[in-house]
Design a protein around this nucleic acid. Sequence first.
DNA 1: AGCGAGAGTTCGTACCACGAACCAGTCTCG
DNA 2: CGAGACTGGTTCGTGGTACGAACTCTCGCT
Lengths: 164, 164
Amino acid sequence: MDSSAQTMPAVTTLVRAAFLVDAVYAESAREHGLTQQQGQLLCVLMARPIGMRELGSMLRLAKSSLTGLVDRTERNGLIRREPDSKDQRAVRVSLTPRGRALVGPFYRDTCDRIERLTDTLDDAGRDALAALLGQVVERNHVPALFAGPGATASGPTAADPTGA
Amino acid sequence: MDSSAQTMPAVTTLVRAAFLVDAVYAESAREHGLTQQQGQLLCVLMARPIGMRELGSMLRLAKSSLTGLVDRTERNGLIRREPDSKDQRAVRVSLTPRGRALVGPFYRDTCDRIERLTDTLDDAGRDALAALLGQVVERNHVPALFAGPGATASGPTAADPTGA
DNA sequence: AGCGAGAGTTCGTACCACGAACCAGTCTCG
DNA sequence: CGAGACTGGTTCGTGGTACGAACTCTCGCT
């Protein structure tokens, strides 16, 4: 490490970048009348309805925590609990029309803001970053948070029911 | 870039990586008997005592939120409020011996865990990642969270009193 | 029929975050 | 010197977040 630019070790940059992304996410949510957690919940539901169990593993929440989050979000009229036709005890959580109407703009807006964080990078840099971080998240089994319905345009990243 | 590996856009990888780092940080804190917020607080205090105002801007907390966080952490015996010799109304928050004894291992352990997330990257990859993310955090004025006292070994990254 | 495992909820506790109102020092300017 | 204006911190009330333990009901299997 002799190049002048390289001051921080990877770990430090990761922590700070996480802090930054978090703050941007929270701010965006707030401006759309959401909490960060409720925003996240809506985003994962964009793709398809999901049961409490799988939801908990995606968001890394204990079941009791999730019950509360879903309660509050449901009370706000953004999501709905539907009975699961196959399993009498299970529940499928899905977006209400109002929730769907809200999450679209929120998702896009948030994407924009995050993208704007990488303003200084050129296309090659951004691609390199995506490749590196992609490898990290891939390798560490991060659930498919924030993979909108091709919101960034492209692929039918099919619903892959493999939970955690 | 059309190679098969490149599926996710940069934005997605950023959000997921942030989520990942967050989870690891929280888990590490928990195992050391801390909450994520209290851990973060201790980490920024590693470098030097800091007043409430600056602390708030570093952690991006409203002052009332910070009062509470400091209260709880102080009650746990990890930090202390000292009067500021120059300004009668101000306060300097500093680590107690117990806090210092706790934060060292916590910081190192957390660093290890984060670093382990990048296991699959070779040295070049990790350097590239550090450079790219470094540019992002630099450019977006992320405060000096998690810059331990050269805990990762190297430089005397002198106390730079330039707050947010 | 019975029984263990799984999906969700309830309950109690603690923490986190905020804005509004407030208080006590500090600063400025007449 | 003294009346504001300003600033560093705290208090208070509200609501969201997260957890573990205990519980209910259903499922699936024997």
